[in-house]
């Protein structure tokens, strides 16, 4: 892990578990991650990889039966887990914002979008005048500004509209506008385009990229789509069964994946250029996260496994900027 100085978000040894009837589910098991100022980090994983739970933990949004068992979460050097709920709420919304996959359920159907943006501004924006008409005017102006920024035409008018009066792509934009209302330093976008069509997906992703450069904020893009990551992210982190398995600069990881899971994922993507060639899926499925044996989590599905993999595997450095959780990294085992 490179120097800890200057990271906007720094998570070490995060362990989040869910207590279920069947036993303790280790949804996030020892995740380390850094987000640097101004960068876009892609977080890739399938269902059950723990990618969403990791950031729900960062945001302090894990609720019973889930709990954070251990780990530190530092934002600009402050330990978020040590903060009171009130202080945490101030950081959340003001400095870290999150958008959800499903904008229709994430927005309040009973309030106009104007009310929802203003609510955030009143709660968090300290630059607003403190009282009176000036405050209302300034907040309103800001709301219009944000909606215009995310590409909502005639924003002044649209403040009075309800969420259901917008299309899916528009709602995702509105949620981004609300998230950005207070110019956060970090935007966590959880599957922002999964529910959207490709042409709309491109619009939303371009928008996030554009705003990132304009506002100079950091973005975490949680997705299952390696294509999206390769196009929009500086660095990528691959999660599998609650652990980080590979991490590094996007071009390097995608061009030369080192963990067998990352390799398998890339081979699993169907492409026009692969027509006629047999597709090579990763066989099997994600292991049950209850009572996992202390071995490589990918063992049962791995086509490069050896007996030595039946022990706990630590992250290993590959050069200065890359890491992967595989015992055979040093060997040249490229199929």
């Amino acid at each position: 892990m490179s120097g800890t100085m200057g990271n906007l978000l720094e998570v070490r040894g995060l362990r989040t578990v869910f207590d279920t009837r069947a036993g303790e589910v280790r949804a996030v098991d020892g995740v380390d991650l850094d987000v640097r100022p101004g960068e876009c980090l892609g977080v890739v994983g399938e269902s059950g990889s723990g990618k969403s739970v990791t950031f729900a933990s960062v945001m302090g949004l894990v609720r019973s039966p889930g709990r954070i068992e251990e780990g530190t979460i530092r934002f600009e050097g402050r330990d978020l887990r040590a903060l009171s709920p009130k202080e945490l709420r101030r950081i959340r919304g003001r400095h870290i914002a999150m958008t959800m996959q499903d904008a229709l359920t994430a927005l309040n159907p009973a309030l106009t979008i104007g009310e929802q943006i203003l609510e955030v501004l009143y709660a968090h924006d300290e630059t607003l005048p403190s009282v009176g008409r000036a405050r209302t005017e300034a907040a309103r102006k800001k709301a219009v500004e944000m909606l215009t920024l995310v590409g909502i035409p005639s924003a002044d008018d649209r403040l009075r509209y309800y969420p259901h009066e917008f299309s899916g792509g528009m709602r995702q934009r509105i949620m981004i506008a609300i998230a950005l209302a207070c110019r956060p330093k970090l935007l966590i976008a959880d599957e922002p385009t999964t529910a959207l069509d490709v042409t709309i997906q491109a619009q939303v992703l371009e928008l996030i990229a554009d705003i990132r450069t304009r506002l100079g904020m950091s973005v975490v893009l949680i997705t299952h789509d390696l294509g999206v990551v390769s196009e929009y992210c500086d660095r990528v982190m691959v999660l599998y069964a609650g652990q980080v398995v590979e991490e590094g600069p996007t071009a390097a990881v995608i061009g030369d994946p080192r963990h067998p899971y990352t390799k398998g994922l890339l081979r699993s993507i169907p492409r026009l250029s692969l027509r006629g060639q047999p597709i090579e899926p990763i066989e099997g499925q994600v292991p049950d996260l209850i009572g996992l044996p202390p071995q490589c989590r990918f063992y049962s599905r791995c086509n490069e496994r050896i007996d030595a993999c039946l022990q706990p595997i630590a992250m290993r450095e590959i050069g200065a900027a890359r890491r992967a959780r595989c015992i055979r990294l040093e060997e040249e085992t490229r199929p």
Binding site: T20, R21, A27, S47, G48, S49, S52, G66, Q101, L289
Partner: peptide, 22 residues
């Protein structure tokens, strides 16, 4: 897609009826 809901669906076996009865 969301991993948060997984633990609930991951629990195997036991018919729906018996789970409800429990």
């Amino acid at each position: 897609m969301s991993a948060v809901s997984d633990p609930a669906t991951a629990s195997p076996a036991a018919s729906l009826f018996r789970r409800n009865l429990a």
